[in-house]
Amino acid sequence: MKTVINNYIREEMFPNMWCPGCGNGIVLGAIIRAIDDLSWDKDKIVAVSGIGCSSRITGYVDFCTMNTTHGRALPFATGIKMANPDLKVIVVMGDGDCSAIGGNHFIHAARRNIDLTAIIINNMIYGMTGGQYSPLTPTGKYGSTAPYGNIDQSFDLVELAIAAGASYVARGTVYNPRQSTSLIKNALDKKGFSVVEIISDCPVSYGKMNKMKSPADMLKWIKDITVSKKVWEGFSPDEKKGKYAIGEFLSKDRPDYTELYEEIIKKAQERGGNK
């Protein structure tokens, strides 16, 4: 049963470490299929992640890979991309990784519009540490540190990424693997900072605490809370509550940071700067 997947994974690392039904594996599949569609040279791909269950993704793919520190994947990736702009740099983060401890790096990577693809696996919880609430846990839901329900307001990563200056912003789900694959492919193909949030399931932490017993229950829930961008736009504010729009939200062209820096190099070499 050789599929494209086998051309990109480190087989000795399988079966993967994730719990049965964990969405991380579905996202891994989508990323690999998207890369395969683009027929990129494996030697020129770098995958960088932070810390969390989702971040373990980098251990499973046969590229140059790096499992860095919690929240810091984007600045590591920024250094790599600056040093060698020919490399295709993919960054995979968890919701906590990206939006809590790494929130500042996220908005600044977007502001710089550096040519990285950020894939955020949003299971709405801190999976690895046992189900504490994250900045993307919906208000009212439960976590091991929100035993009475979460009173925090959650971020909308899509709006955050757009406001901060990203070039490409999309949201998919693990229930819709085909759509997710194509969104990831578009993001990879886009010059500049691109963001794809994938709503995912953590049946073990999130599911158990929020009355969803099985992975299938969680996927059904994800199906129920998501609507296409088009439908979403017709919703009243009340109808939008508790729902997530999925699809492509932004795709624009502007020079990325590494291109702009090439201009700096030219200037410095021609004119000598302001000193």
Partner: peptide, 15 residues
């Protein structure tokens, strides 16, 4: 192919 695409463990394929 939905079973293949949704399998988190690359354990089922359809050809």
């Amino acid at each position: 192919s939905l079973c293949e695409l949704r399998c988190p463990d690359f354990a089922i394929t359809v050809e």
